[in-house]
Design a protein around this nucleic acid. Structure first.
Lengths: 250, 250
DNA sequence: CCCTGTGAACTAATTCACAGCG
DNA sequence: CGCTGTGAATTAGTTCACAGGG
């Protein structure tokens, strides 16, 4: 069952057209941002977008090891994706390599960061400072500057004012105001299942366009909002499928 | 960008039959368990497997609301997947519905649980009892019985003996022995990046066949072992892509 | 040469559309 | 009828294979 490494694909479907019933199901192929990206061509598959951060991480490792040039084959060995796949993914955004040589690591890192929008800091809101939310905030804030949690909200009065890695937990009431003030467009939901949908609605109303949802529910969001779900139970349940056939000897 | 709800696809490639010791990249389409499953046909796509737990959850919600019958359209509305997709996924495993009527919820729940191997308790090992590991264990143990963490390991002597939801943290040294004794075949890795590969190797050596990995590294595992990665940073970085085009007004 | 970049071929997955049957 | 079950059509994604250029 050996799995390809950089896993965890999304299903960021209905990229343009509606997810809802009413919205006439448009068949159009969904055009990618572009301009801002440094000229992304239309139609980059979501699966490819999800691989870019994996390449980026591998490149940063290589750079830390004092490499300057990398071939798609080297990246393939590190990431587990095929070299053709990597070349194709990169080629969606332009020709960054040198034939017969490979890619300059620093150039490619800059390019990928720009494509992903990581060349400016991406401020993130975290809603829910329970055990999971706290662990996520702690991890994120000790390591990352590009995608960084800059606001934490919780509905428990007892937690308000407490700090996680220097960042104060704010009351849920303040959510809209703070998100607007900081221009936050990406949020993480780490609240109980029962509260998640309401939180999502408020986030979207406040201007959030992308949500990473850890609550075990299917969020309903308007078209144009991207949701990525991470659900421990679902992952474990689907992994259970792969271990089912009892070991030969029983 | 509206996303379909029950997200988070995997890339469980190389499902390869015969989890033999010797490697050897087989290109064959990978036959699904079967027999044990209640007669699964060959070749069920991984993406379909990953949707089954989503259906299962929706069905259990419906049952809790005292519904007895559900149509694929109802499930579609709850899960965000299309009704055809749902029917096709279910049909991989047999004809569980009644034409003109729908599916009996209790029958379908039983079927899905059996297909996923959740009709016997699936014991799980958690390696790493840091903030994240602790949060995961707490969440899992307060809710689930089907996929249940039954052993927790940590390398920090200060944590040994401490309990999380009644379960004692054991020393990392005990890993192999405990996994063998309890017949654990599914494990969760929640250790720092630097330790993850070594942990994965030990787990596999002790008999683990499926790993849910929270460490930000690409694990190398032998063929026959399934790895699913969950990586907060990667998720946030790819979501950043979708919010890039600045809001019109800047 | 060597490795990138890319159309073409192929494979996988989804959606369509309708026959089939309670 | 109404909704399942499923081949056929379509669309998406990957791999092949080779031309192209430093």
């Amino acid at each position: 069952m050996a799995v390809r490494p950089g896993d965890g694909e999304p299903r960021l479907s209905g990229r343009a057209p509606a997810a809802g019933k009413k919205a006439g199901a448009e068949p159009e192929p969904a055009v990618v941002p572009d301009q801002e990206t440094g000229g992304a061509p239309a139609r980059v598959p979501d699966v490819a977008i999800r691989r870019l951060p994996v390449y980026l991480r591998a490149l940063e490792e290589l750079r830390a090891e004092d490499h300057e040039i990398v071939s798609s084959a080297d990246l393939a060995a590190r990431t587990g994706y095929s070299s053709e796949q990597i070349r194709k993914d990169l080629a969606y955004f332009g020709a960054f390599g040198t034939r017969g040589v490979g890619y300059r690591i620093d150039v490619l890192v800059d390019r990928l960061r720009h494509i992903l929008g990581l060349d400016r800091e991406v401020p993130i809101a975290l809603v829910g400072a329970g055990h999971l939310g706290t662990a996520l905030a702690r991890y994120n804030r000790t390591r990352h500057r590009d995608v960084r949690i800059v606001a934490i909200f919780d509905s428990d009065p007892a937690r308000i004012g407490e700090r996680i890695e220097g960042l104060e937990i704010q009351p849920a009431d303040a959510m809209e105001a703070v998100i607007r003030r900081l221009g936050i467009r990406l949020a993480v939901i780490a609240v109980p299942a029962g509260a998640a949908q309401a939180v999502a609605r408020r986030l979207v109303a406040a201007g959030v366009e992308a949500i990473l949802n850890f609550a075990p529910v299917t969020l309903q969001v308007p078209p144009g909002v991207v949701v990525q779900n991470i659900d421990l139970t679902l992952e474990l349940q689907s992994l259970a499928y792969y271990i089912r056939p009892e070991p030969a000897t029983g």
